[in-house]
């Protein structure tokens, strides 16, 4: 029964050594048969050899940390069989049968969707960034009422470009992949896509609040969309560097975006109780032909004032009891 030795370093990266020529020395010194780059191993740490009974065994060569097996420091030699695991410093030595059955190969599938195919090309990525800047320019221009809006449009585009670049750069540096590349373009694409979606939904939200004023559903939906987009953004950044499985990426995304939203919204909601002498209302107006606006009658509107009265009364009575 032939054995092979799997040496796994502290980062989990494996290397294999055949046990054909014994004895084999292990340690940090470059004169060893198996060189282990682990600060917790001695220069000459261990030796694998045939013992008196003809079995292969591994033995400590007088090292500081010794060899550990099953969590305990081993005294004397350890007989080596398939499945035996020995710890040498921070390195794990695993002995395996060369005839061990390995799982079959996976079938290579084409890229999952249009999304990833298009995004992978430089043209696709560039198009998304340009589209995002164009959308920012358009939205700024449409909201501007001076005679010459070019300066505010330019300022907005520069700000959007600057913020996305900084955001992408932080991700590029912090999440430098195992291939040691920055993937800046990929990160820029992700943040541009997120900005595009949020901008688009904000415009939609304006129309929704116009048609359905005082609707909690619309406000909650907006928060929900931001939550999902933020989660997708983080998952997207993680996918650019191929970190984690897809499920884990999305989980990381939702946890982060959920936490962020709570941190941002909580103080605002707590402050709702603070006094203000400015009336809080949604003043957004939209150009809709008169016949298409869904309206209440005057009586329905005045009936709704009962809600406002109750809230005001509650606040007054609340302060009465203080």
């Amino acid at each position: 029964m032939a054995l092979i030795l799997e040496v796994r370093d502290g980062r989990g990266i494996p290397a294999w050594h055949r046990l054909e020529t014994l004895p084999l020395t292990l340690g940090r010194a470059l004169s060893n048969d198996i060189i282990v780059d682990d600060p917790y191993t001695d220069a000459h740490h261990a030796r694998i050899q045939l013992d008196e009974s003809g079995e292969i065994a591994i033995e400590d060569a007088g090292s500081v940390n010794g060899l550990r097996s099953d969590g305990a420091r081993a005294n004397g030699k350890i007989i080596v069989r398939p499945g035996v695991e020995v710890r040498m410093g921070r390195t794990i030595l695993r002995f395996r049968d060369v005839n061990e059955v390995v799982p079959p190969a996976l079938v290579e599938s084409p890229p999952a969707s249009l999304y990833s195919r298009r995004l992978e090309t430089t043209f696709g990525r560039g198009a998304i960034v340009v589209l995002m800047l164009a959308a920012v320019a358009l939205v700024t221009w449409l909201g501007n009422t001076e005679r010459s809006s070019s300066s505010s449009v330019l300022a907005a585009v520069l700000a959007a470009a600057g913020v996305s670049f900084v955001w992408a750069a932080i991700w590029a540096v912090a999440a430098r992949g195992a291939d040691r590349r920055f993937h800046l373009a990929g990160h820029m694409t992700m943040i541009s896509l997120a900005i595009l979606v949020v901008l688009g939904y904000s415009v939609l939200n304006e129309w929704l609040t116009f048609f359905f004023p005082d609707s909690t559903v619309v406000s909650v939906a907006y928060v929900g969309v931001v939550l999902v987009v933020l989660a997708a953004l983080i998952a997207g950044h993680l996918s650019v560097v191929n970190a984690l499985t897809r499920k884990r990426r999305w989980r990381a995304g939702f946890i982060t975006s959920g936490t962020l939203l709570v941190l941002i919204l909580a103080p605002g909601m707590l402050q709702d109780d603070e006094f203000s002498d400015v009336p809080p209302f949604e003043g957004r107006l939209k150009p809709v032909p008169a016949s298409l606006v869904p309206t209440s009658t005057v009586d329905e509107f005045l009936g709704a004032i009962g809600e406002a009265k109750e809230e005001a009364d509650r606040e007054k009575l609340g302060s009465d009891s203080n």
Binding site: F281, L285, A312
Partner: peptide, 27 residues
């Protein structure tokens, strides 16, 4: 107290308007 508001799109005598009515109570 603070202002409490209701907002509706209202049609009064066939004129459509966005209407906001806010109330606050004296303590």
């Amino acid at each position: 107290t603070s202002w409490k508001c209701v907002t509706r799109n209202v049609r009064a005598d066939s004129l459509p308007m966005r209407a906001v009515l806010c109330l606050r109570r004296y303590r």
